[in-house]
Structure formats: C-alpha cells, structure tokens
Write a protein that binds this DNA or RNA. Structure first.
Lengths: 112, 112
DNA sequence: ATAACTACCTTGTATTGCAAGATATTTATA
DNA sequence: TATAAATATCTTGCAATACAAGGTAGTTAT
C-alpha cells in the first residue's frame, strides 16, 4: 500500500497532539464533529472521523468533555461537545507540556 | 497502576518526535545509545533504551541511519550510529513538517 | 418511494513508547 | 581464580492513538 516515510512521520508526530488541539477549540466554543473537522482543516490540521469519534468518547469518559443534543436546521440532530472544568485544568497542564516539547526540540536542533 | 491523563498525554505527544530529535542529533555527530540518551536528557527529553533500540533499528532498515563498531576505552565495544544522505533528505522534510505542526497548533490556540 | 445529504458510530490494522526483563564484554577486587 | 560492578548490547509484551473503510439513521427534495 505504498506509504512513504514522510507520511508516516507526519501521522506519528501528531499522536496526542490532536486531543490538545480539540480541547483548545472546545475551550473557546462548543462544537460538533463535522464543524470541528472543518475548523481543523482551516488550520491545515487534517483529521478524519475515524480519529475524532473515539477521541471525543475517550475525553468524555475521562471527564474532560461533555455534550448536549441540539436540533439541526437541516438533517439529523447534532451532538455538541463542550469542555468541562476538569478539561480546562488538563488543558492548562497540556499547555505546559507542549511548550516544554517545543523548547526541547529547539535545544536539540540548535545542538544544545 | 495509576497513570494520570497528563503522563499519557506527554507520552503520546512525543510519538514520532523522538525520531526527529535523534536524526537531528546524529546529523551533527555520530553517537551510541547511552550517549544519545544522556544528551536527550540534557534537553529535558527523557528517552529509555526500550524506545531507542527499536527506533535505531527501524531507521537503519529504512536507510536513514548506518553504524560502525568502535572499541570503548572501558567496557564492551560501542555501536556508533550516523546519518546517511537519505537520512538527511528525510530530516529536511521533517523540519518542514515540524514547523507546519507548530504553526497549526498556534493558529488553533489563537482561535484561527 | 427513492435519492441525496448530513449526521452519527464501529472495526481492524499499523505504528510507536515504555516497562521489565535478558545477554555479553571489560575491569577491578577478594 | 572467582566474582562483582560497570558498561554495553538487545528483546518481549503491553498500552495507546491515527486512519482506512466500512455501517446506521434522520431529514428533505424529487
């Protein structure tokens, strides 16, 4: 199935990071899957449904997110996810981790 | 076995990134496992043997790295890894991917 | 009725990081 | 000569995530 080293790296580098991005988005405003995917695409961060649904369920089970149903102007009802207080705490922690990772990579790239 | 959400996130965020860091280090000078681990630790990027050995073998099999044996002043001989021309090409590509990821996360954090 | 659209969700695979081991060489010491 | 310590190498099994490729169901227009 021909997958280049580069494609794989791109995928691997994003492990865990997608959750961080989604918590960030939902910390600003609640949203549902299709809309989340569109907004991530606008930021050049492609994510597909098969990634997003399990992620949202995991985050909900961990108490980081919650959701509510809402009628759609057209089509079936939408499941709007929003961040919880616990989610905001974890997000703040993730901010520190992300900053730390950027600093570490930078040190290594510059040769310490 | 008590593992916090934060510990997990830290681990996941680093998927793929460790390879990028090691290619960067080996692009500057050849090195062997214990030394690589020490230098990563100096940059606050903790990596253990069980992570590093499989990674180096994979990168060698992909043609990104090669190695040579060298006697040690004390103890068993060391396996010095160094980057190949192909490895440098992939590293250049990964630079772009990493920069792109930082930009994407930044956009999302700022609210697009 | 039926098709198109939108929304939901699941299953199986590939990949990686890590804990917890095992094995082998050299050197110092009892 | 044993034996312990230090320094290397490497493997196995598990947990976690991203993705491809599916499936189900409600709403609306033809």
């Amino acid at each position: 199935m021909e997958s280049s080293v580069q494609d794989n790296i791109r995928s691997q580098m994003r492990k865990g990071l997608v959750e961080y991005c989604i918590l960030n988005m939902l910390a600003r405003k609640e949203s549902y899957v299709s809309e989340i995917i569109e907004e991530l695409k606008d930021a050049d961060m492609i994510v597909v449904e098969g990634t997003l649904y399990p992620l949202l369920i995991r985050a909900k089970n961990q108490g980081l997110l919650s959701y509510r149903w809402q009628e759609s102007p057209q089509g079936p009802p939408r499941k709007y996810y929003f961040i919880t207080e616990e989610g905001r705490k974890v997000l703040a922690c993730m901010d520190g981790i992300w900053t730390g990772i950027i600093n570490s990579v930078d040190k290594i790239r510059r040769g310490e």
